[in-house]
C-alpha cells in the first residue's frame, strides 16, 4: 500500500506491506532506528512516538492508520542542530542508564509538555506510567521532565 504523512517536519511518501505497524515502517522501511523495539506488545513504551502531538505505541498502530498524520520520532526532537530542552535535561540530569527506554520516555514527556506545560510531579509520573525503565531510573527521569517544565 502507499502511504503519505509528515515525518519529523518533512513530507514522507512511501510504500509498505499492509500488515506493517508504524514501528516496522520506521525501522525497517525508513531506517530510523531511534524508535526502539522493546516488547512488541504495547507494554513497555520504548516505541512511543507522537502522532498529531499525542503519544502512540508504534508497535501496535498499523502503518495505514497514520496516513495523513504528523509523526514525530526521537530523530525529530532536535531542531536546526539544537537539542530539544527535554533532551538537554535528560543529558544534564543523567536521566538515562542503558538508554533503551530513553526515546520513548522523551516522547511521552514531550506529549505531556505539549498539552500541559507546567505539570505536577503526579502528572509527570502518570504521563510516563506506560514507559518502563528496567534500570529503575525513574527518579532522574521525572526530575528531568520537571526541570523542563520549571524552566518555561
Amino acid at each position: 500500500m502507499s502511504l503519505s504523512f509528515t515525518l519529523n517536519g518533512q513530507p514522507c511518501a512511501t510504500q509498505a506491506p499492509d500488515h506493517w505497524t508504524v514501528l516496522d515502517l520506521l525501522r525497517d522501511g525508513l531506517g530510523l532506528m531511534g524508535t526502539k523495539y522493546g516488547c512488541g506488545e504495547g507494554v513497555c513504551g520504548t516505541c512511543t512516538v507522537l502522532a498529531d502531538g499525542q503519544p502512540i505505541r508504534a508497535c501496535l498502530v498499523l502503518a495505514a492508520h497514520v496516513r495523513g498524520r504528523v509523526l514525530v520520532t526521537v530523530e525529530g526532537l532536535e531542531r536546526d542542530g539544537r537539542l530539544d530542552p527535554i533532551q538537554t535535561a535528560f543529558a544534564e540530569r543523567g536521566a538515562a542508564q542503558c538508554g533503551y527506554c530513553t526515546p520513548g520516555m522523551m516522547l511521552a514527556a514531550k506529549a505531556l509538555l505539549l498539552e500541559n506545560p507546567s505539570p505536577s510531579e503526579h502528572e509527570v509520573r502518570e504521563a510516563l506510567s506506560g514507559n518502563l525503565c528496567r534500570c529503575t531510573g525513574y527518579t532522574k527521569i521525572v526530575e528531568a521532565v520537571l526541570a523542563v517544565a520549571g524552566s518555561k
Partner: peptide, 25 residues
C-alpha cells in the same frame, strides 16, 4: 480492526492469524 491495541498485539503473539483486516479508520 479499530485502534488495534488488542488485535494487533494478539496477531503479533500469534493468537489469531487473520488473512484480512477490515479497518474502520
Amino acid at each position: 480492526v479499530a485502534g488495534g491495541t488488542a488485535l494487533v498485539a494478539m496477531i503479533r503473539l500469534g493468537l489469531v492469524k487473520p488473512d484480512r483486516l477490515v479497518s474502520l479508520h
